[in-house]
Design a protein around this nucleic acid. Sequence first.
DNA 1: TAGGGTCTAGCGGTTACCAG
DNA 2: CTGGTAACCGCTAGACCCTA
Length: 218
Amino acid sequence: MVDLHTYVPMIDAILSASNPDEVTPKRIRKALQELFGINLDTHRKEVNQLIIQRFEESKQRPRYLITKEELRRKDEALASKLQTAAKRAKSSKSSSVKKKKKRSNNDANSNPNALNLRKVMISEPLSGFLGETSLPRTQIVKLVWDYIKDHNLQNPDDRREILCDDRMKPIFGEKMTMFTLNKILSKYLSNSEEIGVKKSPSSPEDKLNFPEASEATE
DNA sequence: TAGGGTCTAGCGGTTACCAG
DNA sequence: CTGGTAACCGCTAGACCCTA
């Protein structure tokens, strides 16, 4: 039985010396193997868990060479990677489980939906129309619908169609359907609070900007 | 065969309409 | 009455393929 805690000081050292954008549990494990001349493959899960644990604790310790903001961002990035690694390790166990087409309600409920919480920047003239410069997307849609109903702008023959008034025309045009509403809205909404905000690595362009995001998981 | 890497569907929120 | 559909978004669980 290997006492993994023997390697804690070295894990800490690697974590503190590593670039959070590049470090992964796998890389740390491999570094340990090289440094100590051992094979940790049979203890992979335990080692990964220990690395994640040390990472969490390392967040409590100060680092002086970078700014607080930089530190916060790097920690968030690494935390995200390590958490994803932990999730994947968990989910991989169920790979043989019968496929489910839909996720359970429990899963959905345990995940606060980013779409509902994340604020988007509203550009002119929509911001003038709504009187807000940033709101969650769902709230923007709701506000627009409130306005439409308050002013009775739906086509009585086809209530999916919206006949825009003078205030709406510069933004939405003469008329639109409830489906194109979202499409038009998206023209005036931008991501997000700041340039370079963390985006999903799932799109091709993001992979270019965040190449490590797709390789960091274990 | 386990686990890493990549890809994709579904989540929530809004509404009205239509088919079963 | 209920569920599906339509538009849009970022994130993530889960599926699938590949590698060691």
